[in-house]
Computed example of a mutant assay.
Amino acid sequence: MDRAISRWRGCGAADRVDPSGGALVASRPVSVFETQGVVAMGFFSSLKDKLSSIVVGTAAGEWAVTAMAVMVFADGDAEAAEMEKAKVVATTNPVVKNSIGSARGEALFNETVEAIKVAPAAMVQTYLTKLDALARKIGSQDDKNFALAAVIAVATADGDVERAEADLLVRFKALLGATIDVPSAQG
C-alpha cells in the first residue's frame, strides 16, 4: 500500500490519506471484514463510474438503438418479452445514454419499431441500409464494439440466440468492422 489511510471518528465515513505514509491508523478498532468491505465498495464504485463514463459518438448510439429495433424482428416476429428487453436496453445502456441520451434513444427505438411493424420484410431491409450508412460514421473501434455489445444484449435477452439472430449479429459485426465475438446460434 503506497499511502496509509486512516479513518477519523466524527468525520462521517470519510477516508483520509496520511501524508507521512505511516502505519494505518484508526480512531476506533476496525475489523478485517470492515476494511475488506471498503476495498470492495471502492472497486464496485470504480467500475460503476467507468461504465457511466463511457462516451461514444452520436452515430454509435443511433446505430445501436436502430440495430436493437431491427434485432427484435430478426426472426420475423417481435415477441413482447424481446421488445421490452430491447426498450430497456435502448434507454439504459451507457452507449445510448452517453451519446444520444435516454429520451432520444427511446423515441428512436419506438419510431423504428413502428415503421418496421407496417411491413417487416421490406422495412428491415430499409433499416439495414440505414445501419450500413450509420456504421460508416462511427470512427473509433471502441464505439463500434460498444454499439455491437448493446445489440448482443438484446439478442441474448431471452437466454438463447436463434439462427436468424445469430446471422444478423454476424452481419452487424461485418457492417461495423467490430472486433468482439458474437454468440452462435443454439440448438
Results as ranks from 00 to 15, higher is better:
9 R>W: 12
140 S>R: 14
169 L>R: 06
118 V>H: 13
126 T>E: 05
74 A>F: 08
15 D>I: 12
9 R>A: 11
154 V>E: 01
29 P>M: 08
144 K>S: 04
86 A>S: 10
131 L>T: 02
109 F>H: 00
13 A>R: 02
140 S>V: 07
53 S>L: 02
45 S>M: 07
123 M>H: 11
110 N>A: 14
41 M>F: 15
64 A>W: 01
91 T>V: 00
176 L>N: 10
98 N>H: 01
79 E>Q: 14
88 V>M: 04
118 V>S: 14
39 V>L: 15
150 A>W: 02
97 K>F: 05
90 A>T: 04
80 A>D: 13
146 F>V: 04
73 F>S: 06
39 V>E: 14
166 A>K: 08
29 P>R: 08
100 I>A: 00
172 F>C: 12
2 D>T: 11
174 A>R: 15
95 V>H: 03
77 D>N: 09
51 L>I: 02
75 D>Q: 06
51 L>Q: 03
30 V>Q: 01
170 V>C: 08
130 K>E: 05
157 A>I: 05
112 T>G: 11
20 S>C: 10
25 V>L: 12
79 E>H: 13
39 V>Q: 15
45 S>N: 12
84 E>I: 12
160 D>K: 14
179 T>G: 07
152 I>C: 00
140 S>Y: 13
175 L>S: 04
123 M>K: 15
173 K>W: 07
12 G>K: 13
47 L>A: 02
132 D>E: 13
52 S>L: 03
4 A>V: 04
157 A>C: 02
108 L>C: 00
46 S>E: 08
58 T>G: 08
90 A>L: 02
101 G>N: 05
182 V>L: 08
137 K>D: 00
43 F>M: 12
47 L>V: 06
16 R>L: 13
159 G>T: 04
35 T>S: 10
169 L>G: 11
163 R>S: 13
183 P>V: 07
84 E>Q: 14
133 A>D: 09
53 S>V: 03
9 R>L: 11
41 M>S: 15
169 L>H: 10
70 V>M: 01
155 A>I: 01
84 E>A: 15
47 L>R: 01
159 G>P: 05
34 E>C: 08
80 A>M: 10
118 V>E: 13
60 A>Y: 04
118 V>C: 11
39 V>N: 13
81 A>P: 08
88 V>A: 01
167 D>K: 07
38 V>W: 14
121 A>V: 13
99 S>V: 03
147 A>L: 04
150 A>K: 04
